[in-house]
Amino acid sequence: MTSRSERGITDSVQWAILLPVILLTVFGILQVGLWAHGTTVATNAAIAGAERGALADATVDDAKATANRVAAAGGLMGVDVHLTASPTAVSVTVRGTMPTFVDLGQTAVSHQATRPKERVTQP
């Protein structure tokens, strides 16, 4: 039979082992959530920039400004917008970093979106 003080030590040891595992799990879930949010923001910024750049009267600066505005509103830092336009399509790549608790190398997010260019045809 164990004494009362020995049970207290056993409980303390159990919590000393379990608490770091629980904290790592919680912070891991939060880290993955922040990364997923950053990826979604980069995706939406690239799509918004490509859709703006695909308009017939749009300029390259308009498309880049739109992508930058969406990325900044979502919390991306160090945003780099690269736009490639051809006569038939517009491609926008958005790169940035997402603020996280601990930088484990997954804070960089990037996404590319391509849209066909709007054309006005005469009947």
Rank of each mutant, 00 (worst) to 15 (best):
G74H: 08
K117T: 08
G74C: 05
A71P: 10
L23H: 01
S3V: 02
H82I: 15
L83A: 14
L34H: 09
A16N: 04
A113P: 06
V70M: 02
A45K: 12
R4N: 05
A73R: 04
A45T: 12
A85N: 03
V60I: 14
A46C: 06
A65R: 13
K117S: 07
D62E: 10
L18Q: 01
R95E: 06
G96N: 07
S5R: 15
G8Q: 11
G49Y: 09
E118W: 10
L34N: 04
A42N: 09
L30C: 13
W15T: 07
D62W: 07
V94Y: 04
V102Q: 02
A54W: 02
Q112P: 00
V79A: 07
L83H: 10
L23R: 04
P116K: 03
G49C: 12
A108R: 14
W15L: 15
A85M: 12
G105P: 02
I47L: 13
T40Y: 01
R95C: 01
T97K: 13
A50T: 04
Q14N: 01
P20A: 11
M98L: 05
Q14S: 08
A89N: 09
A48M: 01
T121N: 06
F101V: 14
K64C: 09
Q14L: 14
A65H: 06
Q14Y: 01
A56Y: 11
G38D: 03
D80K: 06
T43W: 06
G96P: 05
D103W: 05
A56T: 09
E118P: 05
L24A: 14
G96Y: 08
V102G: 02
L34T: 08
V79W: 04
A16R: 10
R4M: 09
F27Q: 02
G78F: 12
I22Y: 01
I22Q: 00
H37W: 11
G38K: 08
P99A: 13
R7Q: 10
A42L: 09
H82K: 15
